Computed example of a mutant assay.
Amino acid sequence: MLGFFAAIAVCGAIAYMTPAGWQTAAIPVIALFPLVWLGLFAVVYASRTAARAWVGIGATTVVAWAALLLARTVW
Rank of each mutant, 00 (worst) to 15 (best):
A9Y: 02
A42C: 13
I27G: 10
L38P: 03
A26I: 04
T18M: 11
T73Q: 14
F41H: 13
I14G: 08
T24V: 08
T49F: 14
I30G: 11
A64I: 00
L69P: 02
C11E: 09
Q23K: 13
V10G: 06
M1Q: 11
A13E: 05
Y45P: 02
Q23H: 14
L70T: 12
A42R: 11
Q23A: 14
A59S: 08
V44H: 08
A15Y: 04
V62K: 07
T60P: 00
V55S: 01
S47N: 12
A15C: 12
A9K: 11
R72Y: 06
V44E: 06
A59G: 14
A31F: 14
G58C: 11
A26K: 05
L69G: 04
W75A: 02
G21R: 04
L70A: 10
V29C: 14
A7P: 02
G3Q: 10
F33R: 10
R48A: 11
A13R: 07
G21C: 05
V63N: 03
V74P: 00
A9F: 00
A31S: 05
M17W: 04
A20L: 14
W75G: 03
A53N: 05
A64D: 01
A7R: 15
W37E: 04
V55T: 07
V43M: 15
A66D: 12
V63H: 01
